[in-house]
Design a binder for these strands. Structure first.
Lengths: 180, 180
DNA sequence: TTGAACTTTCAGTAATTATTGAAAGTTTAA
DNA sequence: TTAAACTTTCAATAATTACTGAAAGTTCAA
């Protein structure tokens, strides 16, 4: 499997971005490769295209499955596994977003809930407690909000995002209504 | 400078989360330490509290300044620099969010804009082109939306987030109004 | 059951990233 | 100016993370 320069360019870029998106270079490349190819690919094709070992592909696929980003196909009479992205670009982005929330926010929320239950026994600890409470409240708001967004249909979400600057007006309006 | 167990616990947790938030363990600890302490700290105090070298603190501070997360104070008659968080918890979260958007989305958006201008010269490339267009559109929507959110006051943002499940209704309402 | 065709695992190693600490740089008071 | 009190830099090294490839595991047709 050989990549056209244009496609290779994109795949390499995904590799460079990989670690920023939450995985590593190779896994970034794998996502790029799967997304850019219409046909599902075998592990050997991936290894060949990215010039990495077969074992590395296996580990990468495992990781991507833990993010729910790939799905496996089987072709009758063929023992190989064929991999493709698990859903549309939109779905993938959503899954990455959700998984990252779990990894980046949930553990801290858990810790803070525990810490806040303890009493402060010095002025220092009192301030610390307050700060932890603020962080807790922020993270909880974000978590709830993110759950709400997940519940919206892609169309509603697009619609909300495209509200653009008028979103401020909508909020002000809602506030005014509530205040009555 | 010695940390109480409760505070140490929090600081160590920040360290563990550091790399998930976009920096490394030490820098995560530094943020935790600065946030949890009411008084601004000197580089030496930070080094002592976290048991790391003075040079490492210097580099960490530099990195945190590039994220705009710390500010420097001076006390008359004292040559040392005192560091504290650059704003409220809310402000810090915002800055991290914004900086990550710059690092995680902007470079890809730039690449995709370029790639989309080229013509596809095979069926494969045509599909690739379409996928790149989808990713581009998604990232552009997210970028614009994030810019809108940045423009809101913290109060408005809180208000929007607390809209919760009713946000769906607001959107539907807005869609209906527009359709007329 | 065998063995061919595949996948996974994991110990060893390579590559990358973070840290130290000594030296160089900067600032200010005298 | 000097030197004390600080900060920054960076080469060497430590720590972490990723990758390879051989061996073990799995599945299935015959």
């Amino acid at each position: 499997m050989i990549l056209s320069p244009k496609i290779e360019n994109f795949v390499l870029h995904c590799g460079e971005m990989g670690s920023r998106w939450g995985f590593n270079r190779t896994i970034g490349q794998m996502v790029g490769l799967l997304v850019i190819n219409e046909k599902p690919l075998t592990a050997n094709e991936i290894a060949e295209a990215l010039k990495i070992s077969r074992g590395n592909v296996s580990m990468g696929i495992k990781e991507l499955q833990s993010w729910q980003l790939v799905k496996v196909h089987h072709i009758p009479g063929d023992r190989k596994e064929y991999y493709s992205p698990n859903g549309s670009i939109w779905d993938l982005a959503n899954k990455v977003f959700e998984e990252r929330r779990k990894r980046e926010i949930d553990p801290t929320l858990t810790l803070l809930r525990d810490q806040i239950l303890n009493n402060a026994n010095s002025a220092e600890e009192k301030y610390a407690q307050e700060q932890m409470q603020s962080i807790h409240d922020l993270l909880e708001t974000v978590t709830k909000w993110s759950a709400e967004l997940q519940r919206l249909s892609p169309e509603q979400l697009q619609s909300l995002m495209k509200l653009g600057s008028s979103v401020g007006k909508v909020i002000d309006l809602k506030d005014k209504l509530l205040r009555k």
